[in-house]
Design a binder for these strands. Structure first.
Length: 462
DNA sequence: TCACTTTTTCT
DNA sequence: GAAAAAGTG
């Protein structure tokens, strides 16, 4: 009797350097499945990316991807029984929902005498592989990073899986039936500005190494420069493995540019690491001291922030970039987050949810870890008193105003000097630039100086 | 006293 | 990270 394996795609929508798939296709026949579990959180923008990515994946599997909707446990149990499956393979996930789900499924299958094998397909190192000498987990990024570099020597990547023996089942539903493509906002149109899928991810990595890496460390901070890799959505859906990126960048002679990029890539691993050791970090402050923090949570301010109508140009530019492109430059993510949490005194969870819904690269681990980092309540977080001054940040990192002018065109006629803080501009200059503050562009929703002082005062109470 | 740079402090 | 304080010529 021939051996039939089941391969379950999750956040690893690729064929190259996919350890679980690599093993699964060694069976005589393989059934490759994707299950859309509506209980699993996914943002509006991400749904579109997912739908496109699954389409690309299906193409590279010669249209043999089997798609289902519902409870993974029920579906997998049914499939294994109906098809006499002997082996089940997947790459591991690290959020609490997936861990619980996967361990239940594993147990169930093993009780049915099915062999379950799981692999690391999403991280440079798994959370339990990078520990301090006393076997406890790291709490500080830099120490974690040093250890990771030390114990992650070159691990050769796996070649593209040979997917010639796939079975297409009759009960597979069509991609359209997943209903991923009817969002309220125009994500459907916006996604067309992105190339989705494994091939696009590979190309992006090549282009990054060719054009951008040699100036990465310096240029990465300037939002108008397009100097970052933009690999984040590909990494989120596993269209490319972090290990492949690591190997491509971190070779014998690493410059400080290469090193810096690897640091950023390692932040992603550290986020997953934190999620693993603090499973509730999507809703709870890692640092419990912050549970007593008195937030204002003024929803009117939140709405202005979401709409990019705060009256602070760099903040509005960032929030509009997010809404118009499903992406935001990293430097600006820090600025708008700091503004929401510290100047507006709004709980990081509100910002985290908005980002999660609007980003194509929305990722529970990265998103929660980063918001907690900015808010100061995370492990090894930015100290709370570190408060960005958005006007100063704009002068430093968008000194020519290219980024602000692109997304806040109503003030584009202002001279560079005033672009970062139009509210300080003399009336005659405003008039010359065709701006009526409060009408064509808002006054700042909070005063930067007094809101900063208020935040520090609240923090002192902890 | 000034204009500018560097260091310290902020929880 | 930014503001305040201290240092410099």
């Amino acid at each position: 009797m021939s051996e039939i394996s089941l391969y379950w795609f999750r956040q690893d929508l690729r064929l190259t350097d996919n350890p679980a798939l690599h093993e699964a296709v060694k069976s005589d026949k393989t059934i490759a499945i994707y299950i859309h579990d509506e209980k699993y959180p996914i943002g509006s923008a991400s749904k579109l990316w997912l739908s496109k990515s699954l389409k690309k994946l299906d193409e590279s599997l010669n249209n043999k991807l089997n798609i289902y909707k519902g409870s993974p446990k029920d579906i997998i149990e049914k499939l294994t029984k109906e098809n006499n499956i002997t082996n089940v393979y997947w790459n591991r996930c690290y959020d609490k929902y997936s861990i619980k789900r996967d361990s239940e499924i594993k147990k169930l299958l093993q009780n049915n005498d099915i062999d379950v094998k799981t692999f690391n397909g999403s991280l440079l190192l798994e959370p339990w592989q990078c520990l301090k000498d006393d076997n406890t987990h790291y709490k500080v990024f830099t120490a974690f990073y040093k250890k990771l570099i030390q114990i992650k020597p070159y691990v050769p990547n796996l070649s593209k899986a040979n997917v010639i023996n796939l079975i297409k089942l009759e009960n597979s539903i069509s991609l359209e039936n997943l209903e991923l493509t009817k969002p309220k906002h125009s994500w459907q149109r916006i996604i067309n500005f992105w190339e989705v899928g494994e091939k696009a991810a590979q190309l992006k990595l090549e282009e990054f190494i060719e054009d951008k890496i040699n100036n990465y460390k310096e240029a990465r901070d300037y939002p108008s420069m397009d100097s970052t890799s933009k690999l984040s959505p590909h990494l989120h859906f596993g269209e490319i493995s972090p290990s492949q990126i690591f190997n491509a960048i971190y070779q014998n002679n690493v410059s400080s540019n290469h090193e810096h990029f690897i640091r950023e890539l390692t932040w992603r691993d550290f986020s997953y690491y934190l999620m693993y050791y603090y499973p509730d970090f999507d809703t709870k402050n890692i640092n419990e001291k912050f549970d007593n923090f008195e937030w204002d949570n003024n929803l009117k301010l939140l709405k202005r922030w979401q709409e990019g109508q705060t009256g602070i140009p760099i903040v509005d530019a960032g929030m509009r970039e997010l809404w118009q492109t499903g992406y935001m430059h990293n430097r600006v993510r820090m600025i708008v987050a700091s503004f929401l949490v510290k100047n507006c005194l709004i709980h990081w969870k509100y910002g985290e949810e908005w980002f999660f819904d609007c980003l194509f690269d929305a990722d529970i681990a990265n998103n929660c870890a980063s918001w907690q980092w900015v808010a100061g309540c995370g492990m090894d977080a930015a100290p709370y008193f570190r408060i960005f001054n958005p006007a100063l940040q704009a002068q430093k990192f968008d000194s020519k105003g290219d980024y602000i002018r692109k997304y806040v065109p109503e003030i584009s006629k202002l001279p560079n000097k005033y672009l970062a803080e139009p509210w300080t501009t003399k009336p005659e200059i405003l008039e010359k630039a065709n701006i009526q503050l409060g009408k064509t562009y808002p006054y700042p929703i909070v005063d930067l100086k007094t809101s900063r002082e208020k935040a520090l005062e609240q923090y002192k109470k902890l």
